Simulated scan of single mutants.
Amino acid sequence: MIEIQRPVTWVALTGFMGVGKSRIGRELARALTLHFIDLDRYIERQMGLSVADIFHHLGEATFRQLEAEAVEELSRKDYLVLSLGGGTFVNPQNRARLLARGPVVALWASPGTILERVSRRPGERPMLKSPDPFARIQQLMREREPIYRQAHLHVSTEGRRIPEVVEEIIERLWDYAAAGR
Rank of each mutant, 00 (worst) to 15 (best):
V104R: 09
E27G: 00
S156G: 12
K129V: 15
R125E: 08
I170R: 02
Q5M: 07
H35D: 15
P131R: 05
K21V: 01
S130D: 13
P126N: 08
M47Y: 01
L98I: 04
V165S: 00
R172I: 05
Y42D: 06
A109P: 05
T9G: 05
H57E: 15
A100M: 01
Y148L: 03
T33M: 07
L58G: 08
E143N: 10
R23H: 15
Y42T: 04
S75D: 07
E167S: 11
R121W: 12
R142C: 04
E69M: 14
L153A: 05
Q150L: 11
E27N: 00
R41A: 11
T113M: 09
R144E: 14
P103N: 06
R160M: 05
D53R: 09
D40S: 06
S156E: 12
D132K: 04
Y42H: 13
I2S: 15
L58N: 14
R64S: 06
R64P: 02
Y148A: 01
T33I: 01
K129S: 11
L74C: 09
I169L: 00
T14Q: 05
L173T: 03
E60P: 15
I169V: 09
P133F: 08
P103M: 04
M127L: 13
G87S: 04
G102R: 07
S130P: 03
V90M: 12
G112V: 06
E158L: 13
L153D: 03
S119I: 10
R30A: 08
G20D: 02
R142H: 09
S22G: 14
V8N: 10
R136H: 09
T14G: 13
Q138P: 05
E3G: 10
G180P: 15
R161V: 03
T88L: 05
E67H: 06
R101P: 04
S119F: 04
Q5V: 00
H57N: 11
F36V: 08
R160S: 05
G18A: 13
M141C: 08
A68E: 14
G59T: 08
D175C: 12
P103D: 13
L99T: 07
F89P: 10
